[in-house]
Simulated scan of single mutants.
Amino acid sequence: MPIAFEITIKGKVQGVFYRASTRDKATELGISGWCMNLDNGDVLIHAEGERVDLNALLLWCKVGPPKAKVDQVLHRETELKNYSGFRIRRA
């Protein structure tokens, strides 16, 4: 049964292809939703899928792409919106 996570990534995660890499990983895992940069330097992700796949995305988020330096990953379960596909949002 699909669920949704809101994930906030803190650290050096802007300007290092974090969003594009997140989209690629989410697509690989069959996760739908979106990600976007926040004004405070964080990346926000809304991810929907099976719990096992979302947990795999969370593990990936703790490392991210090669140039990222992730300090903290926060997540909470949130309302399912039934997105199709995964895209990068612009603020």
Score class of each variant (00 low, 15 high):
P2V: 09
P2G: 00
P2S: 10
I3V: 13
I3S: 07
F5S: 02
E6F: 03
E6S: 13
I7P: 11
I7F: 02
I7S: 05
I7D: 03
I9K: 00
I9Q: 01
I9D: 00
I9A: 03
I9R: 01
I9H: 00
I9L: 09
K10R: 06
K10D: 11
G11W: 01
K12S: 07
V13E: 14
V13D: 10
Q14T: 04
Q14A: 00
G15L: 07
V16F: 10
V16I: 06
V16Q: 02
V16C: 09
F17C: 13
F17L: 10
Y18F: 15
Y18A: 04
Y18W: 05
Y18M: 13
R19E: 12
A20F: 08
S21K: 02
T22H: 03
R23G: 01
D24E: 15
D24S: 12
K25W: 04
K25R: 11
A26Y: 09
T27D: 14
T27M: 09
T27A: 07
T27S: 13
E28G: 05
G30E: 13
I31V: 02
G33P: 04
G33H: 03
G33N: 11
W34K: 00
W34V: 00
C35A: 06
M36A: 12
N37C: 04
N37Y: 01
L38Y: 03
L38C: 14
L38V: 03
D39Q: 12
D39N: 13
N40T: 11
N40Y: 10
N40D: 15
G41V: 05
G41T: 07
D42M: 10
D42E: 15
D42L: 02
V43I: 06
V43A: 06
V43E: 08
L44S: 09
I45T: 09
H46T: 02
H46E: 09
A47D: 08
A47I: 02
E48G: 01
E48F: 07
E48Q: 13
E48D: 05
E48R: 01
G49V: 06
G49A: 00
E50F: 12
D53E: 15
L54F: 04
L54S: 00
L54E: 00
L54C: 04
N55H: 09
A56G: 03
L57P: 07
L57V: 08
L57A: 01
L58G: 09
L58T: 06
L59K: 09
L59E: 15
L59P: 03
L59M: 07
W60P: 10
W60N: 08
C61A: 15
C61L: 08
C61I: 04
K62A: 12
K62Q: 14
K62Y: 02
K62E: 15
K62V: 02
K62I: 02
V63P: 03
P65Y: 01
P65Q: 02
P66V: 07
P66R: 04
P66E: 15
K67V: 03
A68D: 04
A68I: 03
K69V: 13
K69H: 08
V70R: 01
D71N: 12
Q72L: 13
L74N: 14
L74E: 15
H75N: 13
R76T: 12
R76Q: 14
R76D: 14
E77H: 04
E79L: 11
E79S: 11
L80S: 03
L80H: 04
K81N: 11
K81P: 10
K81D: 11
Y83Q: 05
Y83T: 00
Y83N: 11
F86E: 12
F86V: 07
R87I: 07
I88Q: 05
I88G: 01
R90D: 14
A91F: 08
